[in-house]
């Protein structure tokens, strides 16, 4: 597994999916994100690392405008998806979020059946023309989330009855079913045990073939294991961004070095 990803890491994708320029985020008076510039590539796993409270989750939530749901939050600068400014007045956040899916820190399956959880996105976006097509999407998504074999016999049972790791994979299947182009993951493994974590990590590596994946993690080991690109955030600033291998072996900025060697964070 490790060898394979090392090989793949060399296959550098150069198609840029998301561009961020001079992004500033304010929570009321607090300046949470300062001057962030970053290019996120397609079909790549990009990891955001940094000490807690450094703004990595905040920036992640900017990419699909989840910050809109927080009243006091204000975003400035330009974030573009495929060259289109997502903060443009004409952009409907609902349409944006269909393209940029999100998986959250804590597994949050809806209090519905497993099937309905996965079918929820396709239903609201009208992706399936009939029951058969919907069944197909659900199956593919659950397979894609490496959950199909575990739940195929109990699709009508409530999603809340699954174990923590299964719940998180269900949430990933739910996000995948909407057929997004970008998948944002906000510390997807922080509430999971080590075995569930390794399952989800393997899954993330698989997902890279289809999506641009952005993952926020507090674990440097995880970032090293799953990502090709890594961005290090510190106190609201993007300190360093580059190839994961370079960041971990040869950091340019002293702050990155301190963090990686465990002196801050």
């Amino acid at each position: 597994m490790n060898d394979m990803s090392l090989v793949e890491r060399r296959l550098v994708q150069d198609e840029i999916k998301i561009t961020a320029r001079d992004v500033q985020v304010f929570y009321g008076e607090k300046h949470a994100i300062k001057d962030v510039n970053v290019d996120i590539l397609d079909k790549t796993v990009t990891a955001f690392i940094g000490p807690s409270g450094c703004g990595k989750s905040t920036f992640l939530r900017c990419i699909n405008r989840m910050n809109d749901t927080i009243d006091i939050c204000r975003v400035e600068g330009r974030i573009a998806l495929d060259g289109e400014d997502i903060y443009d007045r004409r952009v409907d956040p609902v349409q944006l979020r269909a393209k940029v899916g999100m998986v959250f820190q804590k597994p949050n399956p809806f209090p519905k059946s497993i099937y309905d959880n996965v079918a929820y996105g396709p239903r609201i976006h009208g992706l399936a023309r009939g029951r058969a097509e919907l069944d197909e999407i659900v199956e593919k998504s659950l397979r894609g989330a490496a959950l199909w074999n575990e739940v195929k016999d109990r699709l009508q049972e409530p999603g809340t009855g699954l174990s923590g790791g299964q719940q998180q994979r269900l949430c990933i299947a739910r996000a995948v079913a909407t057929a997004p182009e970008v998948l944002l993951m906000d510390e997807p493994c922080s509430a999971l045990d080590p075995i569930a974590t390794s399952q989800v990590e393997e899954l993330i590596d698989q997902l890279r073939q289809e999506f641009s994946v952005v993952i926020v993690t507090h674990s440097m080991q995880q970032a090293a294991r799953v990502s090709q690109k890594t961005a290090f955030f510190h106190l609201g600033n993007l300190v360093e961004y580059g190839e994961t291998d370079d960041i971990f072996t040869n950091p340019q900025d002293p702050r990155t070095e301190s963090y990686i060697s465990g002196r801050i964070g």
Partner: peptide, 20 residues
């Protein structure tokens, strides 16, 4: 390999689709 359903929104973000 995760085979995905056809993407529905290949259109621009700047124009709202009829469904939206």
């Amino acid at each position: 390999i995760p085979a995905q359903p056809a993407r529905h929104t290949s259109g621009s973000l700047l124009t709202a689709s009829a469904r939206t």
